Simulated scan of single mutants.
Amino acid sequence: MQRPGAVAGTGLDAGVALHYGAPLPEQRSLDRGLAVTDLSHLGVVRVSGQDRGRLLHSLASQALNNLRAGDSTRTLFLTIQGRIDFDAKVVETEDATFLITERESAQGLADFLSSMRFMMRVEVTNETDEWAVLGARKPLVKNALTWTDPWPHVGAGGFAYSGAEHPAEDTTWVEQLIPLAELDATVDALVSNGIKLSGSMASEALRITDWKPRFGAETDEKTIPHELDLLRTSVHLAKGCYKGQETIARVHNLGHPPRRLVFLHLDGSEHTLPAPGSDVQLGGRSVGKVTTSALHYEAGPIALAVIKRAVDPESTLDVLDGSGATSPATQEVIVATDAGQVVGRAKGFIKPPSRT
C-alpha cells in the first residue's frame, strides 16, 4: 500500500492494493509471469511437532500423513454435515506444516487444531502477523517457502466434476511466504529485476478464468466441496475417516450436489460489474448468486456464480445487480449437472417376498 498509485482493496482483499492505477495491464503482466501480487491479507498458521502429520491427517479431507519437505497440497476441514469450515493451502517443511488461509479464518483454524491435539506432540500458532504472502504465476523469490497450487490437476484420491478440458490445465500459480520484516526489501529487489506490481484485482481476474473457487467468496454456510469441483485437489476419497467424510462419500457415490459452480460470460453492455450476491435468474426466477466478477484483459466482463444444479447449461441467464440493471450471461460448465452418483443406488439387497 506504500507504493505509488496503490488503491486500497475492500472486503476479502482489505489491507492490500486492489491495483496500482492500471488494472488491465497489471493482469496481463501477472498472467505472463512478469508481475507479482501482494497477498499479505491472507492468514498463516504454523503446525509443528512430531505428531502433526497424524493430527492433520485425522481431521482434514486430504491425505496429510506422508508429506515431505517442499510438498504442497490443499485441504478442507469440514463440519459433521460435510460443509466447509476451513480451506487451507498446505506447504510442508522439515520441522513444520504451514497452512495459508483467509485472514479471518486463521485464528479459528488455529484454535480448532489446538483443541483437537489431546495427548499428541503438536504445537499450533497463528503466525499471520509474521509473514507476507506474494502470489505469481511462477516462483520469483529464491529460497522462499513456496506453496505450489495443485489446481486444476486431479490428485491421488481426487475426482473431477468438470469435463475433460480445463482452462487452467497449462497454467501455474504459486504463493511464497516472506518474513514480513523483509517484504519491502524483497519487493524492491524484484522491481529492480524488472518484475512489475499487480493488485489483487489482477489475481482475482486470473482466478476466475482458472475456475478456481475461493473460501469466503464462492462459499457460504451451506457449501459442500462437490458444488465447487473441490474433490479434484482438496479431497482424498480413500484416505479413511474424518469429520464430514460421510457426506463426501454419500453425495459422490449415491447423490448429486444441490448447487454447482459456473463460469459466466457477461454481456458487457453495462458499465459496471455485478457485485457479489447479485441475483442470477432464468425466466424471471432466481436460480443462484454471483460470487465474484471481474473485467478480464482478454475475456472482458466475467464472473463466477453458484446456481442450482439442474439449470440447463445451454440457457442464457440474467444477472441483476444492485442498481437494477440486467445483464445477459452465457455459461461455461465447471461442475456438471450430473455430478455425483458415480456408483448409483444399490439394488437387489432386499429379496422380494416369495409367493406361495
Rank of each mutant, 00 (worst) to 15 (best):
G33A: 09
W131M: 02
S40H: 04
R83W: 02
S48F: 06
L78D: 09
L145N: 01
G70E: 09
R32C: 11
A60M: 10
R28H: 10
R32W: 05
R28I: 10
E94S: 14
S40W: 01
G53D: 11
R83L: 05
P150K: 08
H41S: 04
L34C: 03
A144R: 05
F86R: 06
E123F: 01
D95N: 15
L30M: 14
G33P: 06
F77K: 01
G70N: 07
S40P: 05
D51W: 09
A132T: 01
I100Y: 05
E127N: 04
M116K: 12
V141D: 03
N143V: 01
L64G: 04
R32N: 14
F86E: 01
K142S: 15
R28V: 08
E102D: 14
T93G: 07
V90R: 04
F86N: 01
E102M: 09
A88N: 04
D85Q: 13
S105G: 00
T128A: 07
D51C: 11
W131I: 01
T97Q: 10
Q81G: 08
R137S: 15
N126H: 02
L76Y: 10
L30F: 15
R74Y: 04
D31T: 12
S115E: 08
A88R: 01
L55K: 10
D31N: 14
M116W: 07
E123L: 08
Q107D: 14
V91H: 07
D95Q: 15
D71M: 04
D51M: 10
I80E: 12
V91N: 07
V122L: 05
L39R: 13
D38R: 08
L140D: 03
A144H: 02
L34T: 00
I84D: 02
F112N: 03
R121E: 14
Q62V: 06
R28Q: 13
R46K: 15
F112Q: 04
R103E: 12
E123D: 14
Q81L: 12
N143Q: 12
A35T: 08
I80L: 12
H57F: 12
T148V: 15
W147A: 09
V44N: 01
L78T: 09
D111V: 11
A35F: 08
Q27L: 06
R74E: 15
S40T: 11
L145V: 13
G82V: 10
N143M: 02
A88T: 05
S114F: 01
G70I: 09
R137H: 12
V122D: 02
L109D: 02
A69T: 09
P139A: 10
F112Y: 15
L113H: 05
D129F: 00
L140C: 05
T148S: 15
R121C: 01
M116D: 05
L78G: 06
L30A: 14
M120L: 15
A106C: 10
A88S: 10
S115F: 03
L42N: 03
D85P: 00
L39T: 02
L39Y: 05
T148Y: 13
M119H: 11
E127M: 07
K142I: 08
